[in-house]
Computed example of a mutant assay.
Amino acid sequence: MNDLSLWLIFLLLGLATTLPRASFIVLGNKVALPSRLQRALRYAPAAALAAIVIPDLLVVSGSVTPLNPKLAAGFAAVWVAARWRNPWLPFLIGMAVLWALQAMIKA
């Protein structure tokens, strides 16, 4: 592969990531998305967060482990977040559960 091909690939990848994002800014309200797509896009942030967090909760030492301290701490944090609207409490309870379970496993 020569240098020109490499630069062409960089340019095309840059356009492929920039154009879809810029289209919402450039087009603005001139083009309306279908209502079904707008409803589906409301779930995109939650889906992206789940795609980042769930593998970290399930994978321990390179293999999927459904019963592990991280997953239990994640469930505790979600339960606390659903029960109380305090933004710090899920973090505190989740970390407390994680540390307690890790200490019990080591003992």
Rank of each mutant, 00 (worst) to 15 (best):
R39M: 12
A47I: 12
V59M: 01
S61L: 05
P55R: 02
S23Y: 11
T18A: 15
A107L: 15
L4E: 10
P87V: 05
A103P: 03
L27H: 01
V78E: 06
A44P: 02
L6A: 12
A107M: 14
A72P: 02
D3S: 11
P34I: 10
A100L: 10
L89E: 03
Q102P: 01
L37N: 12
V97D: 01
S23N: 08
A50W: 06
I54M: 08
V26E: 04
L49W: 09
A72N: 00
A77T: 04
K106I: 06
T18S: 14
A100G: 11
T17F: 15
S35W: 10
K106T: 05
L33M: 14
N2Q: 05
A96N: 03
T65E: 01
V53M: 10
S63D: 08
K106N: 03
F75A: 14
A51S: 13
L92N: 00
L67R: 01
G14F: 11
R85I: 02
L58F: 02
F91D: 07
L19I: 14
A51Y: 05
G28R: 00
A47C: 11
P87M: 05
P87W: 04
N2W: 03
A72S: 10
F10Y: 15
P55K: 00
L58K: 00
Q38C: 11
L12S: 13
L12N: 09
M95T: 14
L27I: 06
Y43E: 04
A103Q: 08
W84A: 09
P45Y: 03
A107N: 12
P45Q: 04
L98S: 02
A22V: 06
V64W: 00
K70L: 02
I93W: 03
N86D: 14
L41E: 11
I105F: 03
G74I: 00
P69V: 02
W99C: 13
L58A: 04
A96V: 08
Y43D: 08
L12W: 09
V80D: 01
M95L: 15
A47F: 08
S23H: 07
I9K: 15
R39A: 15
A48L: 12
P45M: 05
L98N: 02
S63K: 07
L49N: 11
R85L: 10
R36S: 15
V31L: 12
L19F: 11
G14A: 08
W79Q: 09
G62W: 01
A103D: 09
S63C: 02
S63R: 09
L15C: 14
A107W: 10
W79K: 10
F24N: 10
A46E: 07
G94W: 03
L4H: 09
G94F: 04
F91E: 08
R39H: 13
V31N: 05
L92S: 11
L8D: 05
P20C: 09
W88G: 14
Y43P: 01
I54W: 04
L67D: 07
R39P: 08
F10N: 12
A40E: 11
A77N: 08
P45C: 08
F24D: 09
W84N: 08
A96S: 12
L19M: 11
T17A: 13
F10H: 13
L58N: 01
T17S: 15
D56R: 09
